[in-house]
Nucleic acid binder design. Sequence first.
DNA 1: ATTATAAAAGATAAAAAGGTCTTTAAATAA
DNA 2: TTATTTAAAGACCTTTTTATCTTTTATAAT
Lengths: 144, 144
Amino acid sequence: MLSNSCKYAIRSVIYLALNSTVNKKIGSKEVALKLNMPQAFLAKILQELTRKHLISSTKGPKGGFFLTDENLNNSVLDIVSCVDGLDAFNVCFLGLRTCSSSKPCSVHHIVEPFKNDIFTQLSNNTITQFANDIRKGTYFISLD
Amino acid sequence: MLSNSCKYAIRSVIYLALNSTVNKKIGSKEVALKLNMPQAFLAKILQELTRKHLISSTKGPKGGFFLTDENLNNSVLDIVSCVDGLDAFNVCFLGLRTCSSSKPCSVHHIVEPFKNDIFTQLSNNTITQFANDIRKGTYFISLD
DNA sequence: ATTATAAAAGATAAAAAGGTCTTTAAATAA
DNA sequence: TTATTTAAAGACCTTTTTATCTTTTATAAT
């Protein structure tokens, strides 16, 4: 459902939320190493997130990526929207153009509530809230 | 979640279940036309389904694709399994290797029930049952 | 037997996703 | 001010997905 790029993006942003501050910026190299992602590819993704103001960066020595308070108040859905767009939440599981609650496909009644739930979960919670749940040990974002 | 090929496959098989018999075989051309799919590409997909005995075919005049009673008793998950494999049902939404009920990612509790529900729906119902629900008007597979 | 028809087979190609490498620009520390 | 560090930019490459085109094979109708 989410692209590889998007999964990398989400995990990276949460990593930055948990580990970086404006005084402790983190390079794409460290993120890639810690989260086991291809470094150059991740750099491109972080570059894109920076351009769209979802994360922040500075160049040079002691430079790197970090999150401002504004960045922290974005939702995870903002990340998804930036990287993948929101199409995934608006298309029929079986690829039917005309699928709807009044003309449901065979799995519509299963897929629709799921899409709503996941959409709500991703849009109603900020990066900060996601990070806090990790800090508390409610959820886990393993360093794969 | 499902590839384009897989969606084409599912819709085609249901179309065949609803419209073909051993005495009224249907060509890939008709299926492609009626379901608005690229004909040559669909032909490849149907060829694969035939090779794996999920649908049946004969060549020549009055030839085409159709479903035997055995074909009709397969589950839709058999189609998915044939075209895409079952990986989609076994991976974490956020791409974490170690995501599980004891170390859940932030959306695990939403995604896991969904995957179970959709898996059950696709594996517990035969092609015939899917087709019957369409015939009865319970569900709809529009001719896009 | 010949012809027409339709799937099977296989080569090819376009587009998208995933990923790498090199060069340039900006910032800091010395 | 020079060297170093790190992101930005952009060219390039690989794999997968999606798709097309051509040739061959099987079958049925005539």
